[in-house]
Simulated scan of single mutants.
Amino acid sequence: MFDSWTGLGRVLLVAPLAYVALVAILRVSGKRTLTKLNAFDLVVTVALGSTLATVLLSKSVALAEGVLAMALLVTFQFVITWLAVRVPWVNTLIKSEPTLLLHNGTFLSQALRSQRVTQDEVLSALRSSGVSNLSDVVAVVLETDGSMSVLKGQDFKIDPQTLSNVDRYHARTGAERRHD
């Protein structure tokens, strides 16, 4: 049940460093790594599963150390999400925003490259959404969970609020960029 205070101290030191490293790696790796999970749910799920397996299978890790590690992971998750909801710059720092990949029937090649998405993948998402003609598509958005949302509309009309939180830099015209 308890090996030593040194072991607990080691977990208190190693767990925050490992958690920060894992979150940083996931954040740097981008949205495609996360497919259908947000980064923090994925971190907690994987880390808790790994910690539990280590506690259960490794005689060198005491139960108290494993429980402490799991409590720390859950606490970090709570603190980060609590801060993200209340402090705008924390939310901006830890969460990516959706990215526009296709706008008014035109592929945004810079956005596709930066998000590591191919035109074929976008076309696949269009087919999955029942789209047979690019002229029916107002936008394709790569969401923060790695999924693609397809917005259809006639004459490229859509409520601007639908795209209000989407990175639209790539969709601006040359004239708009010159005025920045």
Score class of each variant (00 low, 15 high):
159 D>H: 10
109 S>L: 13
47 A>V: 13
3 D>P: 03
179 H>V: 14
30 G>Q: 09
87 V>G: 01
143 E>H: 08
69 A>S: 13
19 Y>S: 09
132 S>F: 14
150 V>L: 03
117 V>L: 10
72 L>E: 07
137 V>I: 06
13 L>W: 07
177 R>A: 11
68 L>H: 08
159 D>T: 04
166 V>F: 01
121 E>T: 08
155 D>K: 14
10 R>H: 11
108 L>R: 05
33 T>D: 00
64 A>Y: 08
74 V>D: 04
5 W>T: 11
140 V>I: 03
141 V>K: 00
97 E>L: 08
20 V>D: 00
127 R>Q: 07
18 A>S: 14
25 I>Q: 04
2 F>C: 07
11 V>A: 12
153 G>C: 11
164 S>G: 05
106 T>D: 06
150 V>C: 03
127 R>H: 06
11 V>K: 01
173 T>A: 02
105 G>W: 07
66 G>N: 04
92 T>A: 13
13 L>H: 01
74 V>R: 01
9 G>S: 11
114 S>P: 02
147 S>N: 12
179 H>D: 10
62 A>L: 02
17 L>V: 15
39 A>D: 03
131 V>S: 04
134 L>D: 02
165 N>F: 09
33 T>F: 08
83 L>Y: 00
133 N>F: 12
36 K>Y: 12
163 L>S: 07
180 D>M: 15
149 S>W: 02
48 L>V: 10
98 P>D: 08
172 R>A: 07
51 T>Q: 03
89 W>G: 03
162 T>Y: 07
117 V>T: 15
63 L>T: 09
109 S>W: 08
96 S>P: 05
120 D>E: 15
164 S>D: 11
142 L>G: 04
145 D>P: 05
69 A>N: 03
85 V>D: 03
30 G>C: 07
77 Q>I: 00
36 K>G: 06
171 A>H: 00
180 D>N: 10
37 L>M: 12
117 V>M: 11
100 L>N: 09
21 A>E: 10
160 P>L: 04
68 L>T: 11
71 A>G: 12
57 L>F: 10
80 I>D: 02
120 D>M: 12
112 L>T: 15
36 K>Q: 13
82 W>M: 10
178 R>K: 10
111 A>E: 05
138 V>R: 09
120 D>A: 15
166 V>D: 04
167 D>F: 02
135 S>W: 04
167 D>S: 06
127 R>I: 09
107 F>N: 06
148 M>R: 05
123 L>I: 13
55 V>L: 13
171 A>V: 01
65 E>M: 07
4 S>A: 03
77 Q>M: 02
164 S>V: 12
96 S>D: 10
65 E>K: 00
25 I>H: 04
145 D>H: 00
158 I>T: 11
71 A>V: 09
158 I>A: 06
53 A>L: 09
23 V>I: 13
157 K>H: 14
143 E>A: 06
30 G>A: 09
19 Y>T: 14
21 A>Y: 11
146 G>K: 05
8 L>Y: 01
124 S>G: 11
148 M>V: 09
13 L>F: 11
78 F>W: 15
119 Q>I: 13
157 K>N: 13
82 W>N: 06
2 F>K: 02
151 L>I: 15
13 L>I: 10
180 D>C: 12
96 S>R: 08
108 L>Q: 13
178 R>F: 06
103 H>I: 05
68 L>G: 04
121 E>K: 06
91 N>Y: 10
166 V>C: 02
142 L>A: 03
